[in-house]
Write a protein that binds this DNA or RNA. Structure first.
Length: 510
RNA sequence: UGGCCUAUGGUGUAACUGGUAACACGUCUGUUUUUGGUGCAGAAGAGUCUAGGUUCGAAACCUAGUGGGCCAACCA
């Protein structure tokens, strides 16, 4: 066989076990088959290849490992793993005394992506991503290129834990881990991704000041750098509105705002083009930086800023668990807008940066210098944005709506649901608390139906609280004209015999 | 249909060998702040899928049901 005398498929070597075995894998499984494939080491000389089940246990045994960890779908293979292991053990029990054990655990699934190597391969082959290390890929090389530190990946894995049930881990946990790490280590810099021009009318034409900026206030050893300031600067478009409410802490006409590491400016007027879009904001500045102002903006001096490419990533898939659908393939959920390329303006100190460096672009997020970056054409990846509690207050744009459409159970719960949640604690409450709860339940009970209550009649005896709140609600319904029936009478008379005095009292009150 | 695995707040994981549920993320308050970040203080949210049973006592043990997953490749 191994010399290639036989054709593929003509001969195989099988382990003789039991063709009647309940476990399919034990029905005389194949160990070797003829495969006339080219091998990167042996070329075309070697023509038989082993099957996974046989090789798995054999190599684990030769390596003398104690535990062989794998994912859940291999559970049915364990019996065969053990069978092979026990048969091989007899040949070298003295030299190789350790018998490995296979143990299965659930695979780690991340929300809005896929983890299967075969499926990931498809993304690479179809050109959906640029390669295995595309920053959107959940591969180690992808995460690293994206800017995730080894440390953050480790803490993530630690927090996630291991168990045997199917899971989908929220990406927000991964994002938390990288933010936590980078908050202490990443130098802060300023970059403007979506610029609008600001002219400081009372600042001298050719004047340039190099202002001192703190690199990282979380790290005393990080030191300071110089940032150039001049008459014309860029700020983010989203940081200016002609008119806005008091909740908007940023720049508006007549309003003042602090420029990070620089002065306080006041917006006086705007210049618009023919389409009515703002092209320039005219401001005045004051050197009184002690003044209290609500907002602080990041900025860059136009004449000193460096143009750079920024790659902003969104989730690869629009569905939380793209490969969990029976009727649809994961490719149907691909997010067509997972990569956005932006021309940004960054502060001049970044000219010194090199591939792999990580920064916080102040107020925006964490970014790293991509492998594609060149001295004269910097390329940054957005690793993750900063948490943004302002964004939550604004209406959610269409694009992201499906990211947060999980049911928020706290809100609009039905009356019966609210009543039931009292039941969980009712019998353990203090007297005055309980009085309040009871009043609340009686109020809520006005808007429930008999069916809601009847469904709770079967509540098991030990859940006294639930039975009490059911009794109170029933009392309200009866007061409002509900006729007693057999089920109701049953429920009441059973309650009168209960050992819980609160329940007995409520039952007697009816 | 059969066999195996699994079920604990929105998510993920805990709870010693039975003693009424803990941690993290997320969510929400308040506070500090030259980042609407960070920090700090706090809150809401779970009778542990359901029904029986064992027990003084069950998230845990037993039985049945239900939901989810896996297994019938000369793939791994």
């Amino acid at each position: 066989m191994k010399a290639g005398e036989f054709e593929e498929g003509s001969h195989v070597l099988r382990a003789k076990i039991d063709m009647q075995h309940v476990n399919m894998h034990m029905r005389d499984p194949l160990m070797y088959r003829v495969l006339k494939k080219h091998h990167h080491r042996t070329g075309n000389d070697w023509c038989i290849y082993p099957m996974y089940d046989w090789t798995h246990g054999e190599s684990d045994y030769i390596e003398q490992i104690s535990h062989s960890l794998c994912s859940l779908e291999f559970k049915p293979h364990r019996e065969l793993y053990d069978w092979f292991k026990e048969h091989v053990y007899g040949y070298a029990a003295n030299e190789l005394p350790m018998q490995p054990k296979q143990r299965e655990f659930a695979r780690l699934n991340l929300s809005y992506t896929i983890m299967s190597k075969r499926k990931l391969l498809k993304l690479v082959e179809d050109g959906v991503v640029s390669g295995w290390d595309d920053p959107r890929m959940p591969t180690i090389s992808g995460l690293r290129r994206r800017g995730y530190t080894a440390n953050s990946i480790r803490t993530f894995i630690e927090k996630v834990g291991v168990a045997k049930r199917e899971n989908v881990i929220d990406v927000s946990l991964l994002e938390f881990c990288i933010r936590e790490d980078l908050n202490y280590t990443a130098p802060r810099v300023m970059a403007v991704l979506d610029p609008i021009k600001v002219i400081i009318t009372n600042y001298p034409e050719d004047k340039v000041e190099w202002l001192e900026a703190e690199n990282n206030q979380e790290d005393d050893s990080a030191g300071f750098r110089k940032v150039p300031f001049s008459k014309e600067i860029y700020i983010e478009k989203a940081d200016f509105k002609e008119e806005a409410s008091n909740k908007f802490f940023r720049l508006k006409l007549g309003g003042e705002v602090r420029l990070k590491n620089a002065y306080i400016i006041k917006a006086e007027s705007v210049v618009k083009n023919a389409d009515g879009n703002i092209t320039e904001i005219h401001c005045t500045y004051t050197t009184d930086t002690e003044k209290k102002v609500k907002g602080t903006l990041h900025w860059v001096s136009i004449k000193h800023a460096i143009k750079a490419e920024v790659r902003e990533y969104d989730r690869l898939f629009m569905d939380e668990a793209p490969d969990s659908h029976q009727d649809k393939g994961f490719m149907e959920f691909i997010n067509p807008n997972s990569l956005k390329t932006i021309e940004a303006y960054v502060e001049p100190s970044l000219a010194e940066s090199s591939i792999g460096d990580r920064f916080q672009f102040q107020r925006l997020g964490y970014f790293n210098v991509d492998n594609d970056s060149k001295v004269d054409q910097l390329v940054f990846n957005k690793i993750v944005g900063l948490r943004d509690s302002w964004a939550k207050q604004k209406p959610i744009p269409q694009q992201q709506q499906n990211q947060n459409n999980k049911p928020q159970q706290q809100n609009k719960r039905s009356a019966i649901e609210q009543i039931k949640s009292y039941g969980k604690k009712y019998d353990r409450m203090q007297d005055d608390q309980r009085e309040k709860a009871k009043a609340e339940i009686q109020e809520l009970a006005k808007s429930i139906s008999y069916e809601d209550v009847e469904a709770l009649f079967g509540t098991s005896v030990k859940k006294a609280g639930t039975r009490i709140i059911t009794m109170i609600s029933l009392g309200v319904l009866l007061n409002n004209g509900l006729e007693k029936n057999e089920a109701i009478n049953d429920f009441i008379s059973k309650a009168k015999d209960d050992k819980n005095q609160l329940l007995v009292a409520e039952a007697n009150a009816i």
